[in-house]
Amino acid sequence: MASVVVDHLTKTFKVPVREEGFANSVKSLFHREYRQVEAVKQVSFALEPGEIVGFLGPNGAGKTTTLKMLSGLLYPTDGDADVIGYRPWERDPEFLTRSALVMGNRNSLNWDLPVADTLDVRRAMYRIPRSDYEQRRERFTEVLGVGDLLTKPVRNLSLGERMKVEILASLLPAPPVLFLDEPTLGLDLSMQKRIREFVGEYAAEEGATILLTSHYMADVTALCERVIVIHRGSLLFDGDLADLSERFGAGKTVTVTVAGEMPDVSSYGEVVERGSSKAVLDVSKDTVAGVASRLLADLAVVDLSIEDPPIEDVIESTFASGDAAADATQEAPRT
């Protein structure tokens, strides 16, 4: 049975609109105009227990709004959701104990006191048995390498240190469902890696279901086999990360190194990069085999590799196709 089932979830915000200028300001005193903004439109998906799924989309796509509905912060306008047997927005205390939303660059700890004091309050709030609390705290502290931070006031921690203790605090109740919204936002590479490893270990040990949003593709490729792409509030793709490349990756990246000077290779594909003896070509998927044969036959090839394009490029191409589809829908005549 799925841990998370999302069924045509929709969220519309009523937003006041007003033209600029003093006259319009006076006019709005008597007559206010609003417009409906559909942040999430009929989104449906399901997550199996233990799955780690990347939830991708450009800024404003509706990712965070969806996570907020699934964590009980927002009421949807329409649709339904079931998270470990609960309807999130009913805010059952048991549901709020067994799920967690961690938002990057947000502070939920007491600013003035040592981290350990906030953790102690969390223990009382989530009614974690003391033995479980001590065992988890010790384990998480070790994995995250934050032992020396527990006695420091939160205001004295760096962003990366604070994010690690935020995650530690959120996971103390050992929630079986975890929503991670940009957990590595603003962190340096080593801190990102540390957090990724911790999330991976937590999921493996606890069998937790995780829905992860991140603009850092390294987070997604390291943790998620499956991704869900949302764009302008609508679901654009739901499947394996490899399939995303297959579907939206425009071509393959061919890197060729020759003995001596690199000749003109523009007839083989789009030249992305060219050095004295090395060139990188963007070649369509359909012709890549033929192009590789020709390169091997025509040139004194020392090395040749064929790779999928970087995932960032695939994602960009996915969003671009979403833009095109949405624009086409808007321009279509209506009857």
Partner: peptide, 23 residues
């Protein structure tokens, strides 16, 4: 009915510490 006494005590204690820090 949820027993809130441990939470009340933990919060009150934390708040006391905070105020004591800024006495």
């Amino acid at each position: 009915m949820r027993n809130l006494a441990p939470l009340y005590w933990a919060e009150a204690k934390m708040s006391m510490q905070q105020q004591a820090q800024y006495r």
